[in-house]
Simulated scan of single mutants.
Amino acid sequence: MLLSLLCISCYAEAESKPVIVASDIWCPYICADNSGYLVELTHQAFKTVGVNVKFATIPFPRALRLAENDQIHAVLAVTPEHIDRHKLQPSSLILGEYANDFYVHIENDWQYSALDGLNNKAIASILGYDYGDKINRLLEQNPQNFRASGEYPLKTNLNLLHRGRVEVLLGNRYVIEYSAKKLGYLEQIKFAGTEGIATPLYVGFSYKDIKQDYPNKFAEGIKNIKRSGQYQAILDKYHIEVW
């Protein structure tokens, strides 16, 4: 009888352990203080299936390494390339899109029209992000380019563009404009075009605690909050258009 009670207690304790999810600040997708539309979708979806979530803000490359080594359960806002490169569980649940958008200082009239227009431009991007093979190579070849790291890399890049240390800021339009408005840079920058086709974004799950089948529980939770209307309410809160 005592053995049975101990087993039940161990099972309950295991079930109560939270899913550890990580990424860096990429607002409005992932913001500070457990906010951001991807953070809220993840929390609420898992809540409907009885799973707690603990979110950690850490640099994106480190989050990917931890997931690859099964030290955390998931990383937010990963591309198919991230999933393949870091040996994460395959997923078909798209939770956003990413496009390569370009911004310049308000006084700069440059507009993106083709890839070769980026030659010899000092471009600010974020270390560990995947911009596609062509732009990745271009970023590596020009020593003027700057790749920010840390927990708030976009803040660094916006400051560099404001100070004239770089000519072009590369990133996601939603993220750049959200952060620029919050940090007081929105009136000093302008959109200068976009490149390529949008890339789908996923929650990338590691193989940690694989018997818990967290990807399927998460997918079930997403269905639940879509039916309740909570999914759309979260997107509306952050002014995200359905992809």
Rank of each mutant, 00 (worst) to 15 (best):
V104H: 03
L118Q: 08
L201Q: 10
N119E: 13
Y174W: 12
I123G: 09
L154D: 01
E187C: 00
I135V: 15
G171R: 03
L158Y: 06
L139F: 03
T156F: 09
S149H: 12
G150H: 09
Y98D: 13
I135N: 08
E140F: 06
Q111N: 11
L118W: 07
Y174L: 14
G196S: 04
G193M: 07
Y152W: 00
F102M: 08
T199K: 09
R137D: 08
D109C: 02
A124Y: 06
V104F: 04
L127C: 05
A122Q: 01
K181N: 14
T199R: 09
E187H: 11
Y129L: 14
P200M: 00
L127P: 00
L115E: 09
N145H: 12
N108Y: 02
S113T: 14
L183M: 15
G132N: 08
G128K: 10
R147F: 05
S179R: 07
G171I: 03
A124S: 15
L170V: 04
D101R: 00
K181V: 07
N119K: 14
Q141L: 11
A124H: 10
D109S: 15
L138E: 06
Y185S: 07
S113N: 10
L127G: 08
G196P: 05
L169W: 01
V168K: 04
A192K: 02
F102I: 00
V168Y: 05
K134I: 10
E97G: 07
L186H: 14
T156M: 09
Q188M: 07
G196N: 03
L183H: 13
P200K: 02
A124F: 10
Y174C: 02
Q111V: 12
Y178M: 11
Y152P: 00
Y112K: 03
N120H: 15
N120Y: 11
V175E: 08
I176F: 05
L93R: 10
Y103L: 01
E195L: 04
N159P: 00
Y98M: 14
L93Y: 03
L201K: 10
P143A: 12
L183S: 14
N136F: 05
I197Q: 11
A114N: 13
T199S: 06
D109A: 13
Y103V: 01
P153N: 11
G204P: 01
L161Q: 10
L93D: 12
K155A: 07
N142S: 13
G164C: 15
E177V: 06
I123H: 07
A114R: 14
L160E: 02
K121W: 02
A122Y: 02
A198F: 02
L186W: 11
G171Y: 00
T156K: 13
A180F: 12
Y202S: 07
G171H: 01
K181F: 08
Y178T: 15
V166T: 10
Q144C: 07
L93N: 08
V168R: 02
E151S: 15
I135F: 09
N157M: 04
L139Q: 05
G184P: 05
L161S: 10
P153G: 12
T194M: 00
G164Q: 14
V166I: 13
S179W: 00
